[in-house]
């Protein structure tokens, strides 16, 4: 408590110093001009602002998480961190802007998978970025997908549900939040791993309308993130399968797919990236700062309240994870698009 206060004071002092020094540095930078002034070693320069691009509108969970991280990162680095929303096209607008920004450490971005992974894989989206356009710095959240039924459903556990769906292919309907969303990939993975077949209903409006249709008995199975279930606080839901490696701390009674004998590991991953081509020392500094901030108990606690479990990965592990996800999605994508038509 005390230490955070001191840190806040310190950073305020540094900020002030930065502001007064601003006019000087401005002249200096103006004189040196050129797009990439040779300032790598003294990054982050006092008085400059780090833009944290969020590819979603204010209020979404990517945005709220970023707005929790930004002030903590500000303290850690001693410069302003400004959240800039660039929403649109399921994140594509913001990701494109991020990929095209200068790799000088003053622009970073919050990304959410699967969207950031899938967008470049679908040629019809016309995305101009790929996985290589970004330098993943840190993963913050892994929010597993779950399968849930209503409390009064006849399916007590995952096995019963899968067996039924195998015997009656396409009879049980399940929600997704649209084409190529996390839920869509999750269910395609489930179908592939179990041989069951579901009737997927795409609620492109989002998780809330999927949940409404599920609770209103218009659809049999709810598919969504752990956080959707926790946030809703509903008593009518029975989660019968979590697609994570371990049980979710928020839903301790819900079995994982692995426990039930199916190899499915799907979820939404959120993290922070910089445009590729960042100088190595800047990348290291950013990675360290983000690592500290993400694992800061206060930040973890605030995210837990939002139903977002922290699952930190450093840069190298995050790159591995991302690549693995990309391979998996490349495999599933053709089947998914064929099903839709």
């Amino acid at each position: 408590m005390k230490s955070t206060k001191i840190a806040a004071l310190l950073s305020a002092g540094i900020l002030l110093a930065g502001l007064t020094a601003c006019s000087n540095t401005a002249d200096a930078a103006g004189g040196a001009s050129g797009p990439a002034a040779k300032s790598e070693s003294n990054w982050p320069q006092k008085g400059k602002t780090i833009d944290l691009i969020v590819a979603y509108a204010p209020g979404g969970s990517v945005d709220t998480a970023a707005r929790v991280v930004a002030p903590a990162l500000e303290k850690e680095l001693g410069v302003n961190v400004q959240v800039t929303n660039k929403p649109g096209a399921g994140g594509q607008i913001g990701y494109t802007a991020l990929a095209n920004s200068k790799p000088d450490g003053y622009t970073i971005g919050a990304v959410s998978a699967p969207s950031v992974v899938v967008t470049p894989l679908d040629p019809s989206r016309g995305a101009t970025f790929t996985r290589e356009s970004f330098l993943p710095l840190a993963r913050q959240v892994f929010d597993p997908q779950v399968i849930a039924v209503k409390k009064d459903s006849k399916f007590e556990d995952l096995g019963a549900l899968i067996d039924y769906a195998k015997a009656h292919p396409g009879e049980l309907s399940a929600t997704t939040t649209g084409i190529q969303t996390g839920e869509h990939f999750a269910m395609t993975s489930v179908e592939e791993a179990t041989g069951a077949k579901f009737n997927l209903v795409a609620f492109s409006e989002g998780a809330a309308s999927a949940m409404a249709a599920f609770l209103g008995d218009h659809v049999d199975i709810y598919v969504g993130n752990v956080s959707d279930i926790v946030d809703s606080g509903s008593n009518d839901i029975r989660v019968i399968g979590v697609m994570g490696a371990e049980r979710s701390p928020s839903l301790p009674d819900a079995h994982t797919f692995k426990e039930e004998g199916y190899d499915v590991d799907e979820g939404t991953a959120r993290g922070y990236v910089a445009p590729a081509g960042l100088p190595e020392d800047v990348a290291t500094k950013l990675e360290d700062a983000l690592g500290k901030v993400i694992q800061d108990p206060a930040v973890v606690d605030q995210l837990n309240k939002l139903g977002l479990p922290t699952a930190y990965l450093n840069s190298a592990d995050y790159i591995d994870y991302w690549t693995k996800q990309e391979t998996q999605y490349k495999k599933l994508l053709p089947q998914m698009m064929a099903d839709a038509k």
Partner: peptide, 9 residues
Amino acid sequence: LQQGLTPGP
């Protein structure tokens, strides 16, 4: 949620 309240039932 940020206040630690789950706004459901």
